[in-house]
Design a protein around this nucleic acid. Structure first.
Length: 266
DNA sequence: AGCACA
């Protein structure tokens, strides 16, 4: 009589243990896969940092170009909850994905990142930490190229394909003032509306909001019905718009698509 | 697809 109940419990146990074995438990670190493989490492780290920081404090971004690890990255959060939130909302985001139909996939990492171990006080008495708490991307967006570490160990440009210059592919820059450093053409006077150009066709308002809402004064993103590739973003003041413009002009939502950000003409 | 960092 009691046999049936036992059987049910056994089944349940089996089921739960199977689930537990096949599921990766929550982790502060996210494993990001299916990234375009010839985006330069520092640029990749910077972009991932921008994007993921919107969900919580990112303490490190690890991207390696070794044969085994290319096209993948680890984004390390201080809190598991932030990692979970980022994983859910950035799943499939077309950032450096190989194509828009083949988006990046995000999962919890299988093991604990060094940056986390260090924070938790491992290595205290023991030997030397792997690195002095990798300073991630430093204090933030305002430093496009201002990262420490002249070269993080594995610059193996030699065997890994050829060194394609990352910007060489995008010749479609017909918008005024897109490339950093390129001589500013006719630039519109500062105002609170930004004009975005050269966007991937399938970009959504939500995706753009993710990028732009991290700067103070953000009000809204507006796609233009009937037109692809462009959008407007509104801030409360010209100054705030200018800040976002400076940081996000040239931001790549896909390997060959560098978004143009300029003041809208009024 | 591929789970590392020193």
């Amino acid at each position: 009589m009691a046999r049936q109940f036992l059987n049910e419990r056994d089944l349940f146990r089996r089921k739960t243990s199977l689930t537990a074995m096949t599921t990766i438990p929550p982790n502060q670190s996210l494993y990001v896969r299916n990234l375009d493989e010839h985006v330069h490492k520092e640029e990749l780290r910077r972009s991932l940092y921008y994007l993921f920081s919107q969900h919580g404090q990112v303490i490190d971004v690890v991207a390696l170009k070794s044969m085994k690890m290319r096209g993948q990255a680890f984004v390390v959060f201080r809190e598991i909850a932030s990692a979970t939130s980022a994983m859910r909302s950035l799943q499939g985001f077309p950032l450096y994905s190989k194509s828009l139909e083949d988006p990046v996939s995000i999962a919890y990492a299988k093991s604990k990142s060094n940056a986390v171990k260090i924070r938790e006080g491992a290595y205290l008495g023991a030997g030397k930490p792997p690195s002095a708490a990798a300073p991630a991307i430093a204090a933030g967006p305002a430093t496009p190229s201002g990262t420490k570490r002249p070269h993080d160990g594995d610059e193996e440009d030699g065997d890994a394909k050829r060194v394609r210059n990352e910007d060489g592919t995008e010749e479609q820059g017909e918008t005024a003032g897109d490339e950093e450093g390129a001589g500013p053409t006719t630039e519109n006077p500062p105002n609170r509306i930004l004009f975005l150009s050269n966007l991937p066709t399938s970009v959504s308002e939500d995706m753009l909001a993710m990028l732009f809402q991290q700067y103070a004064g953000f009000k809204e993103v507006r796609l233009v019905p009937g037109k692809t590739g462009i959008a407007f973003v509104e801030y409360e003041t010209d100054i705030q718009a200018d800040t976002a413009k400076t940081v996000l002009n040239g931001f790549k939502l896909a390997p060959t698509v560098s978004m143009g950000v300029e003041f809208a003409k009024i």
